[in-house]
Design a protein around this nucleic acid. Structure first.
Lengths: 330, 330
DNA sequence: CTGAAAGCGCTAACAC
DNA sequence: GTGTTAGCGCTTTCAG
């Protein structure tokens, strides 16, 4: 099947290529019968406009780049779904880039993004430093960050305030007399853990105490599970907070093995809720983070920035969350 | 920052644009000093070649389309990672398309894929019927299917033979006297379940029996869990096979609640293994499917097809699996 | 080894 | 309403 172009259609319909172009783009100024004639020619030849050529002519690709940390599809799947659904509405294509933990290939990614002339980029949380961000903004590429508030004027951000989330939670618990709250490190999400740590610190300070129960997983342990198994031999807390479901389950399993009764002696709370929390026994409490919305709102914000150029107020959008108490909470 | 083009670089370096193009593309025939001169100009101006224009000129986008079912990032994440890693090596970009269960927007997706002039497409399992596939092949777009063997000559496929997998397993168990094996329906993955069902049927037939324990989840139940809770009141099996981890956990939880002892009275096996299987108590046995490899091999196959045009032998690649017995197996 | 010029497929003034 | 034509930014013969 020969590549068929707008010229072929023009010839077939016996009009100029300009007219075909008008028909394709739904321009109003085409007489009905010629429109039909062109449509038929298009149909007959199976013509599909070449988006690349359109992109060149229009200086617009209707494509955005999405950068996500590689391993985390477990946690970002819903966000991506939200993003894609909105992108579909606005006919945007998404090119997917992933960053591998540790390997700083971010420069390569930015390089290909610039070359590919996408209209905008959405990036997950903290994997972007100031300098890299500047490279992008220098090339006038609108950016929306998911997961972190960004103070930068030029980029948008959509996030959940984890510090506030855990702060509110901690204050409430402390005031009910549960002063022994602990937070489990998560090597894969240092930025999140920092926010949680900050929130806890603040809560404790405000109640005239100091937050000390940050449970670090020593490097020599391959998994949280293995470490916690040891940890519980001589540690006790009233509440343990983890970021991911798998860590919550590690706490759950090791606590049970140490014969710590849940929820009577220990409450377990997982920040990032998932269906697996509900499948654990006892079921683990969690915060319902609006992941789908994070993606959808981010994409919506980006399209707005793409249309209104600079004139989008409110480039920082904070979404809220809901605590879902389950059996791991008294 | 003004958009800077190859002309600007040419002017800056005082050469023709043809020469700049040669430098960009690493053509051998450029004298060293002019190459340096051009490089410096590129550096100075911060020039990045416009991939869109290159695409137009070369009739090649170095981009492939990836189509995955929307909800399933949980199960396809690793496959995507494998695919992306290989794509990176060959400098291919990936545009991501998702299909929503039930909604037949496949035609829209195919439409945009054709328009976007990608070099090839990778699609997950069975979400593609013959007709849609033909649309793509008519436009000469190489296709690789992940998850199903395809008999079609023009498309490649990378898959695990689930029928064989479960057949081997069943034969082994039956011969050890465990004749009461059951399979749980999975509405989200009918094609997979069909393969499993076929494999079980074949195994039973060969042993002079009939396979009857296909556990359908009636539509009125919102989750497998709710149904299985009822089911176990008057059903008993020696082995229950599920496709996804969440179903295995539903079996696990409901069986425990029905005071069926695992693994003594009931063995649970999950086809698609995951870390959550290992976190359950007792830990659930599973088959280690080479998901990352499925993606990586698919992408590698596609690049081969892209280069060698038609001349790729062995367009059907079967990958194997490993049974991982855990505590849910005696 | 380098430059001139045609062409990739399409859009958008500008004429008619 | 419709056609003509000049780009969009780059690659690639073909001369020189």
């Amino acid at each position: 099947m020969k590549r068929i172009t707008i010229y072929d259609v023009a010839k077939e319909a016996d009009v100029s290529l300009a007219t075909v172009s008008r028909v394709i783009n739904g321009s109003e100024v085409v007489r009905e019968d010629t429109r039909v004639k062109v449509q038929e020619a298009i149909e007959k030849l199976g013509y599909k406009p070449n988006a690349i050529a359109q992109g060149l002519a229009l200086q617009k690709t209707t494509t955005i780049a999405l950068i996500v940390p590689e391993a985390s599809f477990f946690y970002t799947g819903q966000i991506i779904n939200g993003l894609i659904d909105v992108a579909k509405i606005y006919k945007y294509n998404i090119v997917l880039h992933t960053t591998t933990e540790g390997i700083t290939e971010m420069n390569d990614i930015i390089e290909t993004i610039i070359k590919s002339r996408v209209d905008g980029v959405v990036i997950f949380n903290d994997k972007l430093n100031k300098e890299e961000l500047n490279t992008l903004t220098n090339y006038q590429i609108p950016i929306v960050v998911i997961g972190n508030r960004m103070s930068d004027e030029t980029v948008g951000s959509v996030y959940v305030d984890y510090a506030k989330l855990i702060y509110d939670f901690a204050i409430e618990r402390i005031d009910r007399g549960m002063k022994n709250i602990a937070l489990v490190e998560d090597r894969k999400n240092p930025a999140m853990i920092k926010q949680l740590n900050d929130g806890l610190k603040k809560a404790y300070e405000e109640r005239g105490m100091e937050f000390k129960n940050y449970i670090e997983i020593p490097k020599e342990y391959r998994s949280s599970y293995l470490f916690l198994k040891e940890y519980f031999k001589d540690h006790k807390h009233e509440i343990i907070v983890t970021y991911r479901d798998s860590q919550a389950m590690a706490v759950l399993n090791t606590a049970k093995e140490a014969e710590i009764s849940i929820p009577d002696e220990l409450e377990i709370v997982c920040i990032l809720d998932s269906k697996y929390n509900a499948m654990a026994r006892p079921q683990i409490s969690g915060f319902k983070i609006p992941d789908y919305d994070l993606g959808a709102v981010a994409m919506r914000l980006l399209t707005k920035m793409l249309v209104d150029e600079e004139e989008v107020m409110d480039k920082e959008i904070e979404l809220s969350y809901i605590f879902t108490p389950r059996k791991s909470t008294k």
